[in-house]
Amino acid sequence: MLELRLVQGSLLKKVLDAIKDLVNDANFDCSATGFSLQAMDSSHVALVGLLLRSEGFEHYRCDRNISMGMNLNNLAKFLKCAGNDDIITIKADDGSDTVTLMFESPTQDKIADFEMKLMDIDSEHLGIPEAEYHAIVRMPSAEFSRICRDLSSIGDTVLISVTKEGVKFSTRGDIGTANVVCRQNTTVDKPEDATIIEMNEPVSLTFALRYLNSFTKASPLSNTVTISLSSELPVVVEYKIAEMGYVRYYLAPKIEEDDEETKP
């Protein structure tokens, strides 16, 4: 038996908007500690990890670990039926092939329930080792989103380099080049507007902007974004969900090929 009650129903809508561009089908795993998801995009270049801890729900009951396979576009169709202030309750019986979504209006004068069919999804879980990152950048999520959007109109890939000077995003395309440098800035009115750079070693890596752009769909979840970079590892782009968990994206870098291979 699974029963989760989330007062802030709009949160679930935002979470779904943040992941449905990247993956079509995914398993939601529920355990006593929380509600989580791990899924890769179809070309296995990017991975999204979601965690909503049980403490963040008004009511959380999960007797047995269950994994619910859903088509995210279908789930989005259901969640569209929920108002932004609605309280969402997710219910599933053990061994059932459906999940029930219940939407209650804040004034309790309207209750709607929906039953969605589940599907069997064969997916691999990747083990993500804890790692020390060479550089960690924390910046306003709107700023990051803006940079990715702007650069993608000029080029396909972005070179992210972190030095003592700050973090630099650069791209190159048929029409020209672009560089955006963000310096450390902690003298701001609101703490979420700060740009904080922790660097152990300078690092620079190239990524496909297409993926970063779909990561920025998570911006409504959090005012700040944390970008962790290491030269041997995929970049981690994390949006924290207040008091509940996070949405984390992992993206494999572009590989520099040997000179030999690029010669004709």
């Binding site: 270049v45 092939d97 494999a252 590989i255």
Partner: peptide, 23 residues
């Protein structure tokens, strides 16, 4: 084709999703 794959960094965990199956 110079884009890397995630599997070259993270290895699949065997059977992680299996015990979660309901029926």
């Amino acid at each position: 084709s110079s884009q890397g794959r995630l599997e070259s960094f993270f290895k699949p965990v065997a059977g992680a999703s299996v015990p979660a199956k309901r029926k």
